[in-house]
């Protein structure tokens, strides 16, 4: 009698929990799958681990709420007297261990893959500064600074009076995008000129810290042309929220064209090329010091 009671309630509870969980996912399971082989691997891992914890959660909460509903004093339940069960305790130690081992295997595989930075066709040095990024294409010897675009910058000032909804790609647009070719293994060499920053484009599947005096490596291979936006992900001072990253992936031929153009441009402006970061900051962000307290 009692056991059937528990079972019926449990089934009902589980149904409710599953509906709620489904609702939670429907609202916004919105992590991007990305456009590189391992951004997809990472997405996969995310989904698997999410599924694992969801299943565990459904079971645990079903047991708990069943108990809450059935085993009430107000229903005249007499408390049982048991205080332990070695078998149960061994089971719920062993099963999680097993699940974790199973999770660890693919995670290890993906991680090893991500660390494999050798054999890249293009090397791009990324240097973080307060509060902009510098990109240098090591093979082609071209480079430039990339900073928050003017519209966003104007709108983001306190009480700017601009409705930020009217600004296209508010806070996620730069003056000069990082142009890269698709289907090409690109190695990033990340460092910083002042404090720690972190270079993150969600669609590429990783973020990596840019640390002064250290060079970190990471790689990517973008499979689809497109514009991918990200932001600095490590607190780096007052304008940490305002140093976006925009990667534009183009076909290899377009890329070569762009490199050629850029080289010519660079040759033309040689001499007065901005080597001083401060110069850039001052020129491109006139209102920079306005909100310095």
């Amino acid at each position: 009698m009692k056991r059937t009671n528990e079972l019926i309630v449990a089934l009902a509870v589980m149904a409710v929990i599953i509906v709620v969980t489904w609702g939670i996912y429907a609202v916004g399971d919105n992590m991007p799958g990305g456009v590189t082989p391992f951004s997809k691997d990472v997405y996969q891992l995310h989904n698997v681990i999410l599924a694992v914890v969801t299943v565990i959660g459904v079971l645990v909460f079903t047991a708990m709420f069943t108990s809450i509903i059935v085993h009430r004093k107000s229903k005249g339940q007499e408390p049982a007297k048991f205080t332990h069960s070695t078998a149960a305790e061994i089971t719920w130690t062993a099963i999680p261990v097993l699940i974790l081992v199973i999770m660890a295997i693919p995670a290890t595989g993906v991680l090893i893959d991500m660390e494999e930075t050798g054999g890249a066709d293009i090397n791009i040095k990324v240097t973080g500064y307060q509060w902009l990024w510098q990109y240098e294409y090591l093979e082609d010897e071209i480079g430039f600074y990339s900073t928050l675009d003017r519209d966003s910058n104007a709108a983001r000032q306190i009480n700017s009076g601009v409705d930020v909804h009217t600004v296209e790609n508010y806070l996620l647009e730069v003056d000069k995008r990082l142009i890269v070719p698709t289907d090409t293994k690109i190695r990033f060499l990340l460092t910083s000129g002042d404090v720690i920053h972190s270079w993150w484009v969600p669609e590429l599947g990783w973020k990596r810290d840019a640390i002064p005096g250290m060079v970190n490596e990471a790689w990517t291979l973008i499979e689809e042309e497109g514009i991918y936006r990200g932001q600095c992900a490590e607190l780096c001072g007052k304008d940490h929220g305002f140093m976006p990253i925009v990667v534009e992936a183009v076909s290899p031929s377009e890329y070569r064209q762009w490199v050629a153009d850029r080289k010519a441009e660079q040759a033309a402006e040689a001499g007065d090329e901005p080597s001083e970061v401060q110069q850039i900051t001052a020129a491109d962000e006139p209102a920079h010091n306005a909100d310095q307290g």
Binding site: K125, L189, T191, G213, M214, V215, E217
Partner: peptide
């Protein structure tokens, strides 16, 4: 050692 280019520091040493 990393600053000197060992192990994970190869590029740190080379570039910086």
């Amino acid at each position: 050692p990393w600053l000197g280019g060992e192990g994970a520091g190869a590029m740190t040493n080379e570039l910086l």
